[in-house]
């Protein structure tokens, strides 16, 4: 790797103060992302994958206490002010459930135009043709006609394409896609994911794909980060997923629980236990209570970082 990474996160931690105590939502997150790279962040619900993307985008609630040694994007430090400048332009996001993320009473074309007028910025008149071009780019058939459609007139897959068109309208260098295909049919999911992958390749755009589906991340990403209870427990090249070469006990369990990875029902194995309560004191390794190879010293800080290869990092003391 010669070029400096596009996004660097060093030791990011995030706490939420609540009435019942401090929730340690993220701890000790290190992450780098190169230009044009597709990184998958995989984990169960509650693992912190969405809140991490909100932290990058600066979309956190007031109750959030964010600490980090360094968050830099394209050579600039990301803070509340700079992220607000970049959001919608260099940084863009696609949300889960396109139907609720789109304004139901505004034509989809107008909604894309609004983004262009606000962020590009383009004058209203020029924005219309740019919006139609954006719709054409996400391969929506007959974009001139769809420009005038309301979200309820479009199918789920079509709405998601409108969301993608909106996110891509200002040519971002980083796109965060938060479960972009949840709720879509498999055939539509495949089309939407192909589209994201192809556009990323065309524009050399980096993508963070947040998903609970390890098989999906394995197919479309370059690298995969597995999260558990606010920690990134493993970062590996995505090819390792298909080869079942993930090392962390949680990542291996997550893979074994994926129907696509099992030949028969007997091979399917659930992950014992459940996510720990993120309030109060936690052992250094938050997977310890569920782990089959845990030893008493797993509770002791710091959480070890174990390099298998320069691009493969595991945060476990005892995994093979």
């Amino acid at each position: 790797m010669t070029a400096p990474p596009l996004l660097t996160i060093d030791k990011l931690s995030l706490d939420f103060d609540t009435r019942s105590g401090t929730v340690k939502a993220l701890e000790d997150i290190d992450l780098t992302l190169n230009k044009g790279e597709i990184l998958g962040i995989v984990g169960e619900s509650g693992s912190g994958k969405s809140v991490l993307s909100f932290a990058i985008m600066g979309l956190l609630d007031e109750a959030a206490k964010l600490r980090a040694d360094k968050i830099s994007f394209g050579g600039m430090a990301l803070n509340a002010k700079s992220v607000a400048e970049m959001r919608g332009r260099e940084l863009s996001m696609i949300f889960q459930s396109p139907r609720t993320a789109l304004n139901p009473i505004r034509k989809v074309g107008k909604q894309i135009e609004d983004v262009l007028v606000r962020h590009a910025p383009l004058p209203r008149k020029a924005a219309k043709s740019a919006a139609i071009a954006a719709l054409r780019q996400v391969r929506i058939p007959d974009p001139e006609r769809r420009y005038n459609a309301y979200p309820f007139e479009l199918s789920g897959g079509m709405c998601q394409r409108v969301m993608i068109a909106m996110a891509l309208a200002c040519d971002p260098t980083l796109l965060i896609a938060d479960e972009p295909t949840t709720g879509l049919d498999v055939t539509t999911q495949a089309v939407v994911m192909d589209l994201i992958r192809d556009i990323a390749a065309e524009r050399n755009m980096a993508v963070i794909l947040i998903t609970h589906d390890l098989a999906l991340a394995g197919e479309y990403c370059d690298r995969v980060a597995v999260m558990h209870a606010g920690h990134i427990v493993e970062v590996a090249p995505a090819a390792q997923v298909a080869q079942n070469a993930l090392r962390h006990p949680y990542a291996r369990r997550l893979f074994a629980a994926t129907p696509a990875a099992s030949a028969e029902l007997e091979d399917l194995a659930a992950i014992p236990g459940s996510l720990p309560d993120l309030r109060g004191t936690l052992p250094a390794c938050r997977y310890m209570a569920r782990c089959e190879i845990a030893r008493p010293d797993c509770a002791q800080a710091p959480l070890p970082a174990h390099d298998i290869s320069p691009s493969h990092l595991v945060r476990c003391r005892y995994c093979p």
Partner: peptide
């Protein structure tokens, strides 16, 4: 069948 995600089809 071709649409369901499969890491082997990377």
């Amino acid at each position: 069948i071709a649409g369901s995600p499969d890491p082997a089809r990377r």
